[in-house]
Nucleic acid binder design. Structure first.
Lengths: 325, 325
DNA sequence: ATAAAGTGTGGAACGCTTTTCATAGCAAGA
DNA sequence: TCTTGCTATGAAAAGCGTTCCACACTTTAT
């Protein structure tokens, strides 16, 4: 296919002039501009974007890492990123890491070799030192709190999330409150647990250790929890649950076991999954799509202005009262 | 940062030799290879992928168009594509079209200007002529049936889906069967309706027209349907529903109204949404992730072997019996 | 009238790697 | 001994667009 040199020759102008036309630079006479356009049309010419990228040093691509796409939380972040990226003519490279540090590194390398202008990490498998090292090649934003020096973040305040949920349950008179969280020692889980304990302490309540459910990941885990609660001598009257699909498992199984929700067991979930709406689960919703939008905004600012200032933006969660409390 | 010339100079070899080392070409002596590697390490050099792309004419990127990412069906297709793409060192550019023909064209243009090597269209807003036109610049695969000349497809056989569901319900003795579909006149809906009527006809049953529910899109639509059925003098004994979130709405609301599922109303859904599993909805599952995998396979084959033969691959759906029948 | 500022255009360097072609040494086969 | 056929390596072209610099011609301001 035609290239810029051929267009220049056919239009009887220099390559520079064609380039100016393509990029809407001023200082091209209407005559020549028209003629160049005519030839471009005629020859069905478009720029080779790889040449443009090579020449400008930009790709108009941002990357996104996540463990897996097929997950409501992550795809909702992507949605936020994608919308904002499109507004700025940026394309999105979505990269599944499967939580593997190696796969993640292979993506970080894409930043180094200029396949992308910046990177948003929705999750992270490598240590902060590693990420920091790659941050010299292009801006990186994480969608969770991080301790890196050059990596900014926009994240949901998980402490707040649990605090709001706990405050709400305490306000409703609950004192026997349990919790369910995912990976036991993840950064997020730590915060959640702290909020749980802080709130109970300030209410002067000592929690029963058997009401703490950790490593809850699947719907089935939720069902199992319902079972375990059902068999307890002293049951909690309420649960705060980190994810709504877990909460859904609990609600469904509780129903089957004759454990009434919310009368026997009140439940507060902690995310935005549609299943929460469907099963009418009260939830402390986290604005994940908005988080994506902000992540891109921050990234874009750093791409354009080439600064590396660390910024941490926390998004406040919002309580959505529904039927399980 | 360093470029290949600098590495060559420092290693005391030619640029070609460095390139050979980088690309694992034979015909480089162990000595020089080692020395080049040493310098590469030392200078922390990596190739500039834009230069590589320009030179090779390939980008190792495939695009995916879809109306929105935040949707179980589409993200499950992406998952399938992503897994297979990663195996072949391909990156994924995910492009939301919001069903806009213009936005879709801006993505098709990325194929023309070599920003991607091929394109998978999960949905399509432009006519086949338009798509065909762009297919000359790189292979395109759609994840739904299409009538284009140069565009292959891998898709779920929606006629089969409904046929299987209907056969199953008829086999269980149901004769009073209704259906719920989405957009009334979409390609897919046409096929579904045809299957519905064909199956009833071959069973010698004439359907009541008020059991046909069209334009069902949201969970709320499902709830409304439950209401309407509840108020009918003569109710259908079973429903075949195109999406499980609609089915979920029906199930939930039926429960509230005292309409027993499956005793009073059996329900068969028609996709893979996790809500189906959660609410134990019997479903004719469509292997959307597998569809993505196959789509990439077909695309990859066309990228590598540069052929344009039209191929249409239909995926058989699979009945998953659960609690609503 | 004269300097300064603005407009319009072309040449050439620059961004970086891959790949083809040419060359040369050396070993194996005829 | 002479030809083939490898192995090893470098020079240079090809892939393509952007942008800086230089030059020339108009205007406008002083």
């Amino acid at each position: 296919m035609a290239n810029i040199r051929e267009i220049a020759k056919l239009a009887g102008v220099s390559v520079s002039t064609v380039s100016r036309v393509l990029n809407n630079h001023p200082y091209v006479s209407e005559q020549k501009r028209a003629e160049v356009m005519r030839i471009i049309q005629e020859r069905n010419y478009v720029q080779n974007s790889n040449a443009v990228h090579l020449s400008t040093g930009k790709t108009m691509v941002v990357g996104v890492t996540l463990p897996l796409v097929n997950n409501q939380y992550y795809s909702s972040i992507i949605e936020g990123i994608a919308g904002e990226a499109a507004r700025h003519q940026y394309n999105l490279m979505v990269c599944q890491t499967n939580n593997s540090a190696e796969q993640e590194q292979s993506i970080l390398r894409l930043l180094k070799n200029k396949k992308m202008d910046g990177l948003i990490m929705c999750s992270r498998a490598n240590g902060c030192e590693t990420i920091d090292e790659y941050a010299q090649y292009g801006p990186i934003i994480t969608c969770e709190a991080n301790e890196a020096v050059f990596v900014s973040s926009v994240h949901i305040d998980h402490y707040q999330t649990f605090r709001i949920g706990m405050e709400y349950l305490l306000g409703k008179g609950h004192r026997k409150i349990g919790y369910c969280i995912g990976r036991k020692n993840s950064f997020n889980s730590q915060h959640r647990k702290r909020a749980y304990h802080d709130m109970l302490q300030s209410a002067g309540v000592t929690p029963a250790p058997e009401w703490a459910f950790e490593n809850c990941l699947t719907v089935q885990d939720g069902k199992d929890i319902a079972h375990r609660i059902w068999q307890m001598n002293e049951r909690p009257s309420a649960l705060i649950v980190s994810c709504n699909h877990i909460a859904a498992g609990i609600v469904k199984e509780a129903g089957r076991l004759g454990l009434r929700v919310p009368e026997d067991l009140a439940i507060v979930g902690c995310d935005d999954q549609p299943v929460g709406e469907l099963l009418e689960i009260t939830t402390v919703s986290s604005p994940s799509s908005l988080m994506g939008k902000y992540a891109f905004e921050m990234l874009y600012d750093r791409i354009v202005h080439q600064h590396k200032e660390k910024e941490e933006r926390e998004l406040p969660p919002l309580l959505v009262e529904r039927g399980t409390t």
